[in-house]
């Protein structure tokens, strides 16, 4: 006879179950909802020999162990010759590089380098073999963009992986499309331009710079809109609260019914 079986008929058992259930739901809710942080917007600067030298020195200390002393690539990491400054700025400013370990998907984390250092490494890599440059603040500004066209493009070519509101989603073998909730306009632009990790490339002749700004406008507008409820499941809406309220309400009704029809204990 287990402890629970012996005590479940006690008067307080029903209340204990309800309190325990509410406590579990509350703790789980508090755990999954977090406050989104903000990332600083990066602005490009023209490369000087001094900047390139600083980038080379940072590269040799932090990146060369996987990407090779001359960024030619090793068995641990790909060649970076020709990837361009935009790819470096994306990877370093989102904290994906330098990587802690080689995993299926490099997670976003607080960046190791500040903006000036990031741009220095980017300038060094760009000096090795060209590639797309870091876009200027005006090139990524969502102000005045055609958000309707941005939505059409996003729904057609981005939403299958990143979710219709940019909440992200799973891919194969542990890879995933990250949520776009923290991405800056510059990072979104660079991701489209360079196709980091498993993401396809959307070059400027297929999705023009103006259309990239339209897509950025859609993403930044949608994520700033009011999101009712707590755990919204990628902006589906306050479904989880409804489900919890429904299950909790039905549960309370069941316990109330049990209490109403409970036979009084014979004390004589």
């Amino acid at each position: 006879m287990s402890l629970i079986t012996a005590r479940r008929r006690r008067r307080a058992a029903g209340y204990a179950v309800i309190v325990l259930g509410l406590l579990t739901a509350g703790v789980a809710y508090a755990t999954v909802t977090g406050q989104p942080g903000t990332a600083a917007a990066a602005t490009p600067s023209s490369a000087s020999p001094k900047q390139i030298a600083e980038g080379a020195s940072l590269f040799s200390v932090t990146c060369a162990s996987c990407h090779g002393m001359n960024a030619q690539g090793t068995s641990q990491g790909p060649s970076l010759i020709g990837v361009g400054a935009a790819a470096v700025d994306f990877q370093v400013s989102t904290g994906r590089m330098p990587a802690k370990e080689i995993s299926a998907e490099m997670p976003r984390k607080p960046p190791v380098f500040d903006t000036a250092q990031t741009h220095a490494i980017a300038a060094y890599i760009a000096s090795l073999g060209g590639g797309p440059a870091i876009p200027s603040a005006a090139e990524v500004s969502p102000i005045g963009a055609d958000m309707a066209l941005g939505q059409s493009l996003f729904i057609t070519d981005c939403a299958q992986c990143h979710n219709f509101s940019g909440a992200g989603g799973a891919l194969t073998y542990g890879k995933y499309a990250p949520a776009l909730t923290h991405s800056t306009p510059t990072q979104i632009y660079e991701a489209m331009l360079t196709g980091p990790e498993a993401m396809p490339v959307f070059n400027d002749t297929t999705i023009t710079p103006a259309q990239k700004r339209d897509i950025i406008a859609y993403i930044t507008t949608v994520r700033s809109e009011a999101n009712p409820g707590g755990f919204s499941l990628g902006r589906i809406g306050p479904v989880t609260e409804g489900l919890v309220a429904f299950l909790g309400g039905i549960g309370s009704l069941v316990f109330a019914s049990i209490w109403i029809t409970l036979k009084r204990r014979e004390h004589t």
Binding site: D157, P200, N203, T205, I207
Partner: peptide, 15 residues
Amino acid sequence: PLRPADFSNPGQMIT
């Protein structure tokens, strides 16, 4: 419309 030269980076995909 697209020319093959517009769609020139390996790894590109579009609908």
